[in-house]
């Protein structure tokens, strides 16, 4: 009862804060939502892996970086749009993810968690440095006219292109929900995520499911890599902050709670853009997320102790 009332007060506070900011600095909300879309759509695939395979994939952002480079090569060679290249790039990344899973992660599934963590850390380093080796650390950028599309409402003018990420994030959540509840493979994945041993007993091929989920998630993040390049320049280390941010969002939402990632992303996106709105605090925007992650992890551990 008390919990419910607390939650209601909390929600009311958030609504009031959002309304206040909306009136005062509308761009904070707009750009915050756009950033939230990007964060969420990268975090969701990682949440899928963490929820079902129970592996913290520290090479998550690096898969996106690889896909972005792949898109860059394909698009500059063939002169096509990243949105066209998106599907083949996603398929190739999914294949790479599957191979990486088979060769490395599968071998470490039974190993202690520390080994898995160090293993994916090693994967992340290898991918980043491989990109460094092949492409050097020079930044690369592709420009498209449609990215600078903007909308004016009264005196307010803002870029609308980045709303595409919000749409993708929402579509991902809906798509995953349908996949996990309506298809046989999805139901099997959900069962394996809840209890691998039990799933194996009732005849689900756990290894195959893990491989499928891993490939699906890397495919999704590969697709994100293809779209990512339309808005940002890329360099070998571009993916690693997203690994951290994704993990933070998942920890905030709670492992296995994929729709919760959306809410967590909105919180992160808006608070970051709130700081960015003022010149004095602009440099501190990056710290928001690290403070959030620590607060959330500590908060959860204390809550866990009490329960």
């Amino acid at each position: 009862m008390a919990n419910k009332r607390n939650a209601a007060i909390f929600a009311a506070l958030i609504v009031a804060a959002v309304a206040g900011i909306l009136v005062w600095r509308p761009t904070v909300i707009i750009y915050g939502l756009q950033a939230a879309g990007l964060y969420a759509s990268i975090a969701i695939p990682m949440g899928l892996i963490l929820g079902i395979v129970h592996i913290v994939n520290l090479a998550h952002g690096e898969f996106m970086m690889v896909a972005a480079y792949l898109t860059y090569m394909v698009c500059t060679a063939l002169g096509i749009d990243p949105f066209v290249a998106m599907i083949p790039v996603a398929l190739v990344t999914a294949l790479v993810g599957f191979i990486v899973y088979k060769l490395t992660i599968r071998q470490a599934l039974k190993a202690p968690e520390l080994n898995q963590l160090i293993l994916t850390f090693g994967l992340a380093i290898s991918l980043t440095q491989l990109a460094n080796l092949l492409f050097t650390s020079q930044t690369r950028k592709m420009s498209f006219g449609y990215v600078s599309a903007s909308l004016s409402i009264g005196e307010l003018s803002f870029g609308v292109y980045n709303f595409v990420f919000v749409a993708i994030a929402v579509l991902m959540v809906i798509g995953l929900r349908l996949f996990l509840t309506r298809t046989t493979a999805g139901k099997a994945a959900l069962a394996v995520g809840q209890n691998p041993k039990g799933a194996a007993i009732v005849g689900i091929d756990v290894d195959k499911t893990y491989g499928l989920v891993f490939a699906l998630a890397t495919g999704m993040v590969g697709m994100m890599g293809a779209i990512f390049i339309t808005r940002s320049s890329i360099f070998p280390a571009v993916g690693s902050p997203f690994t951290m941010k994704s993990f933070c969002l998942i920890a905030m939402a709670g492992i296995g709670n994929i729709p919760g990632i959306l809410g967590a992303s909105v919180l992160l996106g808006i608070s970051e853009n709130f700081l960015k709105a003022f010149r004095e605090t602009r440099g501190w925007a990056d710290i928001v997320f690290f403070v959030l992650i620590i607060t959330v992890i500590l908060g959860r551990s204390i809550k866990g102790k009490k329960a």
Binding site: L119, T128, L133, S137
Partner: peptide, 18 residues
């Protein structure tokens, strides 16, 4: 290899763990 010689470290970490 001035760029990316650290790839060796990544590969060593993976191989050692495996």
């Amino acid at each position: 290899i001035p760029y990316g010689h650290l790839v060796v470290y990544g590969i060593i970490i993976i191989l050692v763990i495996l």
